[in-house]
């Protein structure tokens, strides 16, 4: 069965001056999925999203949205995508009515009913000014505007990073309702791991401008195993499986592997690992990370 790709890229790279912000990026995000883009700040998440919406041009390789190039065929791509940039920028002096009329004029597929229904269910009045809303409400308004555009692919850059846990939960509920109702494909970047496991079905881990792992969460959970045993070398294991992370104390060795089939080895106790632990292990591989760059703020 071939599933249509919402986003696909091949050898995609973006260089700013002498620094590669994204490099050798090859991946495919299936239509209908909810994909999380995770990685520390500076790993290339925002760069990938900006390439996807055509806000910047690739230095190398290709990116396609539903088979079209965002740079060369924006007239095919732009009507199909919704983009909520970091800090959900809105016109602070606008009333909600102004925001809706703005959206209506700029978007051919604009769904006024959907927008009004969503704002109504949030308890917001059209006369309210954007600048007076709470952070959580502003995020909800930005999501409403993006969904009312009726996109086939919705891209969100750190949509919930600045929200308190309750507002984040409400935001994700609204987002998931949007997915259930409209069947929209979602790609969201995040450095908050806590909610991802229940929200996403695909995961792309970016580290040092490269893709460290990209797969369905099901396959990731299935293939990764944590091995614990008495202190010993990991060479034998590394011959059969890919070692993601190994940690040795004077008594015990703990190894996270991406298993190549089953792990049969009586020296190790084999256990399952949750997604958050797996992501953290991949991010821990990242040697450029410095303490002042928060990887997680959960």
């Amino acid at each position: 069965m071939t599933v249509r790709s919402a986003l696909s890229c091949e050898g995609l790279g973006k260089r700013y001056g002498s620094t590669w912000a994204l490099r050798d990026c090859t991946l495919r995000i299936p239509a209908g999925s909810v994909t999380a883009l995770v990685g520390p700040n500076g790993a290339g998440k925002t760069t990938l999203l900006q390439l996807a919406v055509g806000m910047s041009a690739p230095t190398a390789g290709e990116i396609e949205i539903f088979g079209w190039s965002p740079q060369r065929e924006p007239q095919m791509v732009l009507p199909r995508i919704g983009f909520v940039a970091q800090d959900h920028p809105l016109y602070r002096g606008f009333t909600l009515a102004d925001m809706l009329s703005f959206g209506r004029r700029l978007n051919a597929r604009w769904d006024e009913k959907l927008a009004r229904r969503r704002l109504d269910s949030l308890g917001l009045q059209l006369s309210q000014r954007v600048g007076k809303l709470s952070g959580g409400q502003q995020a909800q308004v930005a999501l409403t505007l993006a969904l009312a555009k009726r996109p086939e692919l919705l891209l969100l850059d750190e949509p919930a990073a600045a929200l308190d846990p309750l507002a984040r939960r409400e935001f994700l509920q609204a987002l998931m309702e949007g997915v259930a109702e409209e069947g929209v494909t979602v790609v969201l970047s995040s450095h908050i791991l806590a909610d991802l496991e229940r929200v996403c079905d695909h995961l792309v881990i970016l580290s040092r401008a490269r893709v460290a792992l990209a797969d369905s969460t099901e396959e990731i959970a299935r293939s990764h195993r944590l091995l614990t045993g008495a202190t010993r070398g990991v060479d034998e294991i590394a011959q059969l499986h890919s070692v993601v992370h190994a940690n040795t104390t004077d008594r015990q060795t703990t190894v996270l592997v991406r298993a190549n089939g089953h792990v049969y080895d009586s020296h190790w106790q084999v256990s399952n690992v949750d997604l958050e632990q797996i992501v953290l292990a991949y991010l821990a591989l990242d040697p450029v990370r410095t303490p002042e760059q928060p990887v997680m703020s959960a």
Partner: peptide, 15 residues
């Protein structure tokens, strides 16, 4: 409905 479950649990509809 799927939407009701998704709305109350904040989980992926595909689940």
């Amino acid at each position: 409905t799927i939407k009701e479950v998704v709305g109350s649990l904040a989980i992926n509809p595909n689940t």
